[in-house]
Write a protein that binds this DNA or RNA. Structure first.
Lengths: 225, 225
DNA sequence: CCGATTTTGTTGTGAAAACAACACTTTTTA
DNA sequence: TAAAAAGTGTTGTTTTCACAACAAAATCGG
């Protein structure tokens, strides 16, 4: 079966045998597609019919407002899904664009089929729903986390709060972040040059060290617990 | 049965008969409690054992960071729940405090019982899970919505984005918001006096009108679609 | 109903961030 | 592998915001 290895590696389908996967793929009317870096996987404002599951690579969830400001909502990695909450809320269009940040393999699933109790009763559909639930819970937590960074009143606290949370997640003061400086600025909704400036200062002051996407939190200061 | 009317009015239990409710209440080890205005319903950092369901009244989800800054994460109304995503993520402590904003009746449900498939197989447990799922999807969307407001680079755009989204939701340019100015400032993470000032300007310029919590969007300008 | 507390609008000041411009470096790609 | 494109660090200028202070208005609680 096509891409079974990747599918098996995701949280959603981890439990499934190849046979079960095949049944569900039929049930969810899945399609596969590979995208190059910077290609649009889904487009903000277009009719929403599918939920996207990242099988290989990664992608940014990006939102552009009416003034053209780009905001990176979050970064999706292998195994993450986009569009589940919209499917449940019965949105008719995509609220964001999904942009591949490298060569990325995506599986699309019919959103209606996914959230509707299966008449065929493909055996593990319930379990899929349960896994989706856990993923939605995690997404919720990620968003709450992001909100705590964005709630800080200056760039320094925003970025330190962000770095601190990554450090905690990775259980180390040495860690890699998924963004370059420009992207991080969009993620935190601050000016790129101002962020670059602040990072320089933090480095000069010996609070952090970094090189490309590799960071080291030296003094955690007030963010200690 | 105690509080059946209120329970029946919530999304989670809307389908249930009094008998079924009673069975589930046993299953979820529910407890009821009434809180006065400004009383803490759950406390940030304390052990998390229960999911809270608002049956009457309303409450703020508030987060205090290590520097003492208060941030209002969201406002919960009748029928809303707090803690589902934490329950699924198996958090051991509450990440926020829940503060009653008026006299509020809360039902607590054992979080472990809630997310664990029921051995007793109380008939509608699956349906409850499905409803929780929809609520989590909605919560997700609310958070995404809030992020778009917070992503704006100045107060004016933040508050206009917020007001515009409420207006859309209520399908009218006349609407009521759940926050007073001080609370709205905490919700949007901006200085209260700066927000008050900006609102005054917007009123002077004829873009909006307001009185207490009643607002009127006059010109939607660039936020039009 | 009245005194106490909280909320609000306003103003001024200093700090911080957005914006713009530019040279330099890194990465992409043809 | 060289040219083009994208990302980065730095600086100066302008705008915006946080902060502090205070009087007035509204709300609360006994």
């Amino acid at each position: 079966m096509e891409h079974f290895t990747e599918l098996k590696a995701t949280k959603i389908f981890s439990f499934s045998s190849e046979f079960e996967c095949q049944a569900m793929m039929f049930c969810f009317k899945t399609r596969f597609k590979t995208f190059d870096k910077n290609q649009k996987i889904v487009s903000q404002g277009e009719p929403m019919n599918d939920v996207a599951l990242i099988l290989k690579g990664s992608a940014n969830v990006e939102n552009i407002d009416s003034l053209g400001n780009i905001s990176i909502v979050m970064r999706l990695k292998k195994g993450d899904v986009y569009g589940v909450e919209s499917a449940y809320a019965r949105d008719d269009v995509y609220k964001d664009s999904l942009i591949a940040t490298e060569k990325t393999l995506v599986m699309f699933m019919d959103s209606h089929r996914l959230i509707t109790p299966c008449e065929n009763r493909c055996k593990r559909h319930d379990l899929v729903v349960k896994n989706l639930m856990r993923m939605m819970a995690e997404s919720n937590i990620r968003l709450l986390d992001k909100l705590t960074h964005m709630a800080k009143k200056n760039i320094r606290d925003k970025v330190l709060s962000y770095l601190y949370s990554i450090s905690q997640k990775q259980q180390s003061t040495y860690f890699e972040i998924p963004f370059n400086v420009t992207e991080l600025a969009n993620y935190l909704s601050v000016d790129r040059s101002a962020l670059s400036n602040e990072l320089s200062k933090l480095k000069k002051e010996g609070l952090i060290d970094y090189e490309k996407k590799q960071y080291h939190l030296i003094k955690k200061d007030k963010y200690d617990e």
